[in-house]
Amino acid sequence: MTRMAVFWILIPLFIGVLFIGLYRNLLAKLAVIFGASGRFIPWGDVDAAALGQAYADEVVFQRRIRLRGRVPWTRHILISWGFSVLFVFDILTALLTKYLPSEPFLDGNVGWLFLKFGLNLSGMVLLVGLLIALARSVTTAGTEQARFNDMPGTVFLLLVVVTGFVAQGMRFANVPPQPGYGWALLGSWMGEAMRAGAPYAGSHAFVWVTHALLASAFLAYLGWSRMIHVFAAPLGRIFYSQVALREAKVRTVMEGLLKPRAGSR
């Protein structure tokens, strides 16, 4: 059985765990909040401009976090954009090198180098964001500023990223250097730094499998931790960008407050 086969056998389970977490911790609760907000509004009544603005503010530029300061915003934008772009390049790499392999995407060719460049650049952006987050978690521990920190999530994602770079470094160290490999940035630099210990056979396989399992487990973890905000925060913002829903929620809450409580006179 190949390493990729093991990965493919496990991934439906990990994604299942993610969905169960999303259902229990997000969808079931959102359903109640939707219910309190007058349920769905017809498509025709959706304010597309407000929806687009909310998406740009919350997801693209993350202006709400900018209000908390430059460092939290830099940390968050590096992590979220680094993670998102890395995820896209991961899918593209699997698709173009494993499922629909063609000449440009063979090892060392221009398409392959482009994918490696994208993977490594986004991975490095993510790594810098995580290191800032880790430093901030340590320096602000126990203070009011620590309210928004997520140390377990940061350490988990850091392990995923570091094992990914180490696996890639071992892979580059196992083959003779080529001029184009420089486009792989940190992966290639680590390969050169690790060349003295090459070849890595069993250890490369072990680190690769560890990285794949950690990355898959992290996806499952998203639904069961503070990381659920990856899905919930944009949804919530987009939801309340619609005036009709916002007003309906305020009305329901006010009606609830005005209702006489059991036992009151």
């Binding site: 911790n25 079931a28 609760k29 959102l30 109640v32 909040i33 219910g35 309190a36 928004f148 503070r226 659920i228 905000h229 919930a232 925060a233 949804l235 919530g236 913002r237 309340y240 609830g256």
Partner: peptide, 15 residues
Amino acid sequence: DLGEATAASRRWFWF
């Protein structure tokens, strides 16, 4: 219930 749902959203900074 609604209280539990909104408490979760506050705890995990959804909104």
